[in-house]
Computed example of a mutant assay.
Amino acid sequence: MLLLLCGIVFLHIAVLVLLFVSTIVSTWSATQTSTADLWVNCTTASACLAGDTGVWIQSVQALMILSIIFSILSLCLFFCQLFTLQKGGRFFLTGSFQIFACLFIMCGAIIYTVMRNTWIPSGASYGYAYILAWVAFPLALISGLIYIILRKRE
């Protein structure tokens, strides 16, 4: 049982690390000479554009931040429920918060995918932070489903 709990916590922390890295680093899109992320677009030759220039990029920023917040809350709720939940109870609240985080990741990545041609030149490729966000999506979903299925034992 202890090994299972350690595995679940490790998976959750891995999701959190992926979310932090994908939200903070500056490589959501890249060309050979420049990069663009959720906060600054440095793909134009003249100057870098701030992330507050478009409504859609602000929604992606908000969704990624909300996914981090909900994932952190989910981890805190897991530890609280681990010590307060009755024997045989399920971690529904923890799982639902993690699934909400998963949905926020998915929505943010989809909005970025659809609208990125208005933010960067059309020849740019996706960067590793964008890929990390998509990797975090199924891991968060799996984590949330594990929490919902998991029962507390002694």
Rank of each mutant, 00 (worst) to 15 (best):
Ile110Glu: 07
Lys152Cys: 02
Tyr112His: 15
Gly88Glu: 02
Ile99Phe: 04
Gln98Leu: 01
Gly54Cys: 04
Leu73Asp: 01
Ile68Asn: 02
Val17Cys: 07
Ser122Ile: 00
Leu5Ile: 09
Ala133Asp: 07
Cys6Tyr: 09
Leu3Ala: 11
Phe79Ser: 10
Tyr147Thr: 02
Thr31Arg: 00
Ile8Ser: 10
Phe20Arg: 14
Phe100Ala: 12
Gly88Tyr: 09
Cys80Gly: 04
Cys80Gln: 05
Gly144Pro: 04
Leu66Cys: 15
Ile146Cys: 07
Thr84Glu: 04
Ser22Met: 05
Cys102Phe: 10
Val17Tyr: 00
Ser67Val: 03
Ile72Thr: 07
Leu132Ser: 10
Val135Ala: 03
Ile111Pro: 00
Phe20Met: 15
Ser143Tyr: 00
Ile146Thr: 14
Leu73Gln: 08
Gln61Pro: 10
Leu2Lys: 14
Ile72Asn: 15
Ser143Arg: 01
Met64Ile: 13
Gly54His: 07
Ala109Pro: 06
Gly89Cys: 08
Ser34Lys: 00
Leu73Pro: 04
Leu4Asp: 12
Phe97Trp: 08
Phe70Leu: 11
Phe97Ile: 00
Phe104Trp: 02
Val21Asp: 06
Glu154Arg: 09
Ile99Lys: 06
Leu18Val: 02
Ile8Asn: 13
Gly123Arg: 06
Gln58Met: 06
Leu16Thr: 02
Phe91Pro: 02
Arg151Ser: 05
Thr23Gln: 00
Val21Ile: 11
Leu5Tyr: 07
Ile142Gln: 07
Cys48Met: 10
Tyr147Gln: 07
Leu82Phe: 12
Gln61Phe: 00
Gly88Leu: 06
Ile69Gln: 12
Ser26Trp: 00
Phe104Leu: 11
Ile68Leu: 14
Ala30Asn: 11
Phe20Gln: 14
Tyr130Gln: 13
Phe83Trp: 07
Ser122Pro: 08
Cys107Pro: 05
Ile110Gln: 08
Ile99Tyr: 05
Leu16His: 02
Ala62His: 01
Gly89Pro: 09
Gln86Pro: 15
Val15Pro: 08
Ser122Gln: 09
Val55Asp: 13
Ile148Asp: 12
Thr23Trp: 00
Cys107Ala: 14
Ser26Thr: 00
Ser46Asn: 11
Gly95Asn: 12
Ile148Leu: 15
Cys48Asn: 07
Ile65Gly: 11
Gln86Arg: 04
Ala45Pro: 06
Gly89Thr: 00
Val21His: 01
Ala136Glu: 03
Cys102Arg: 02
Ser46Leu: 09
Leu132Glu: 07
Gly7Trp: 01
Phe78Asp: 14
Ile148His: 05
Met106Cys: 15
Asn41Thr: 05
Thr118Glu: 12
Ala47Lys: 13
Ile131His: 06
Phe100Tyr: 01
Phe78Val: 13
Ala45Asn: 11
Phe83Leu: 11
Leu150Glu: 10
Ser22Ala: 11
Leu18Ser: 07
Thr118Asn: 03
Ile120Leu: 11
Lys152His: 11
Thr43Val: 09
Thr43Cys: 12
Asn117Asp: 13
Thr31Tyr: 05
Ala62Tyr: 05
Cys80Thr: 06
Trp39Asp: 13
Ser96Leu: 05
Ile131Leu: 04
Ile142Asn: 15
Ala45Met: 03
Asn117Thr: 13
Leu103His: 08
Thr31Asp: 10
Phe70Gly: 13
Leu73Cys: 10
Leu145Val: 13
Phe79Leu: 15
His12Tyr: 02
Leu19Asp: 12
Gln58His: 10
Leu139Thr: 08
Ser67Gln: 01
Leu103Met: 15
Leu2Val: 12
Leu63Val: 13
Trp28Arg: 08
Trp119Leu: 05
Val40Glu: 00
Trp119Met: 01
